[in-house]
C-alpha cells in the first residue's frame, strides 16, 4: 500500500513545473535497486513463512478423494481406516497430512480457515499439511473448476478434541 501511495505521489508531483532530473538516479536508483531491495525483502519473508507451513516431521495421515462432484475422506480409526462422505475428521492441535487424490478430473482441496490448498489430480497423490488449533467445524470447498456442479462441491472438516481421538463413531458427538 505504501508503495502504491509513493508511486501516486510521484506521479502527482510530476505535474509541477518542469525540472532537471538525473536519469541514472531514477532509472537505476529507483527502477532497479529500490525495486530489487523491496522484492528481496518480500521474498525472504515469504520463504520463511513458506518453510514454516511445510510438512516437517511426522504427522497423522488422512485421505481425501475427489470425484465429480463430491469428496470422500478416510482417517485411521481404532481398527483400520474409517471412511466418511463429505466430512473429514481430524484431531485438533496436531499436524495432519491430507493425501489428496482424484478419480476423474482435476479438483482442489481447500479449507480457507486452515490455510493451504492443493490440487487433486487424477493419477497423482498430493500431500498437504494442515493443523487446526482448536476443535470445531471448518468449511471446505473445491477450488479448481471441475464442471457443472463445481460450486456445490463443498465439504466439512471436523477437528476433534485430541483427548477423544480417534472418534468412536464418525457420526458421534460433534464438538
Amino acid at each position: 500500500m505504501a508503495l502504491a501511495l509513493m508511486v501516486f505521489v510521484l506521479v502527482a508531483l510530476g505535474f509541477g513545473r518542469p525540472r532537471a532530473i538525473t536519469e541514472g538516479r531514477w532509472v537505476f536508483g529507483m527502477g532497479v535497486w529500490f525495486s530489487l531491495g523491496v522484492l528481496s525483502l518480500i521474498l525472504i519473508a515469504a520463504l520463511w513463512v513458506g518453510e514454516r507451513i511445510l510438512p516437517h516431521g511426522p504427522a497423522l495421515e488422512v485421505r481425501a478423494h475427489a470425484r465429480q462432484w463430491a469428496w470422500s475422506f478416510s482417517h485411521p480409526g481404532a481398527e483400520g481406516p474409517v471412511t466418511s462422505e463429505g466430512v473429514l475428521h481430524i484431531p485438533a492441535g496436531r499436524p495432519v497430512d491430507v493425501l489428496i487424490t482424484s478419480t476423474d478430473v482435476i479438483h482442489s482441496f481447500w479449507v480457507p480457515q486452515l490455510g493451504g490448498k492443493m490440487d487433486a489430480i487424477p493419477g497423482r497423490e498430493n500431500r498437504l499439511r494442515l493443523e487446526a488449533a482448536r476443535p470445531g467445524t471448518y468449511e471446505g470447498l473445491c477450488a479448481e473448476f471441475c464442471g457443472l456442479e463445481h460450486a456445490a462441491m463443498r465439504f466439512e472438516v471436523i477437528a476433534h478434541d485430541p483427548a477423544q481421538w480417534p472418534p468412536v463413531s464418525p457420526e458421534g458427538p460433534r464438538p
Partner: peptide, 8 residues
C-alpha cells in the same frame, strides 16, 4: 520510474 521521471 522512467515514465514518472519523464513527467517530472
Amino acid at each position: 520510474f522512467a515514465w514518472i521521471a519523464t513527467l517530472w
